[in-house]
Write a protein that binds this DNA or RNA. Structure first.
Lengths: 210, 210
DNA sequence: TAGATTGTTAATCGATTAACAATC
DNA sequence: TAGATTGTTAATCGATTAACAATC
């Protein structure tokens, strides 16, 4: 196994964030080639930055032509582990949990939702898309059976820590936390917080200062 | 009006992001005081950074005691324009749009959802929480009536640009875009992209490199 | 007073941008 | 070949961290 594989070098966080946005953009782009200039304009950044970003993946462009979009998709797919399908489970079958369970874009990202759980007896057994809502007691079995490493927390903030404990208890490796509170987990567990409401504060802040 | 008001000085983007997370955390915190050390531990950062962040708002702590949580909430509320209530509208009454329409945390952030729209005749007239789903033709009227400055895009990615055009057309000032594609708008319009699926790529990337 | 914690300056670190050589 | 665009190095800019004085 060659250690020259570029995907193992450290990618700075801001660069990784941009690469993610390029990636989702490329996935629905029809053009065959794109130049750093075009891409930069689309995202309101400098073309130098685009080229610098691409130095972190095994991508080379052609002078006078630009970058080959299918190659970009392939390399970025490798970077984000598209080729490894991850089964994920969702805790909380409210609106947000249901929205995620039905989200059609996961396939392109190498992710599959295999189960959704709730503790509300009225919800258990009902369907969210093609998935039946399962009781929390079934988590351990599902995690083992589908080799689930990633758990998604979509419960109200007051239950977030409890849900996290449950996930840690069954040996989950990473938590994608949609509750707008930090959760305490052992430091071996990866936590990615995704507070969907936070963007509105940025907007209000900018509107305010205008 | 005093120009010494600190909220008019420039706050670096990373600092603003952290301040948002502190703010949502404080809103549900019961303690009266918190030290930079405690807060730093909660968010896995350095206490120096917490103190530096607070220099961007009118906040002073007490040596040996820490920072007064209600004061933090008050000052951060000012920074994020909590005192100015913004009426917002949601385009798209799918799962995500509905989840946002019912989200109970907006009140604390000085935001109110006044209407939700869809172009699907089957959805128009049905209820999402207390709001009736309205046809797109009603947008202009609602925007004028409720002085709406912020529009939220919760439509599938292929309709995102169309929704953006519609919002720009009725004079919206800022767009909160939940579709995972960049949208083109005049540069006078503020766009905040909130791709809810992007966090999973970070997780996969980290899991992969382990 | 002693000790803990804040507040601020200066040093370091890391990311962005400018400049320009390489290349198709 | 000339021209456009990439790729890379060096300079700049900005954010984080260390150090320590101020203060309750």
């Amino acid at each position: 196994m060659s250690k020259t594989n570029k995907s193992f070098i450290h990618v700075p966080k801001p660069t990784l964030e941009r690469l993610k946005r390029y990636y989702t953009y490329f996935l629905q782009l029809e053009a065959e080639y794109i130049s750093s200039e075009e891409l930069a304009e689309k995202f309101n950044i400098k073309p130098e930055q685009v080229r610098k970003d691409f130095t972190y993946v095994n991508i080379t462009g052609k002078p006078k032509v630009g970058y080959h979009v299918p190659s970009l998709i392939k390399e970025l797919g490798l970077l984000f582990g598209k080729e490894v399908l991850e089964n994920i489970i969702i805790i909380g079958a409210g609106n947000l949990g249901s929205a995620l369970a039905k989200y059609s874009g996961f396939e392109k990202l190498g992710v599959k939702v295999v189960a959704i759980f709730d503790n509300d007896p009225k919800k258990i057994g009902s369907f969210v898309g093609e998935l039946a809502v399962l009781p929390l007691s079934a988590i351990e079995r599902v995690v083992k059976r589908f080799k689930v490493k990633i758990g998604v927390i979509c419960v109200p903030e007051e239950s977030a820590q409890e849900a996290a404990n449950l996930l840690v208890g069954v040996g989950i490796k990473a938590i994608w936390n949609f509750a707008p509170v930090p959760i305490d987990v052992p430091e071996t567990v990866i936590v990615e917080n995704q507070d969907i409401s936070s963007g509105i504060l940025t907007i209000k802040h900018i509107l305010d200062k205008k």
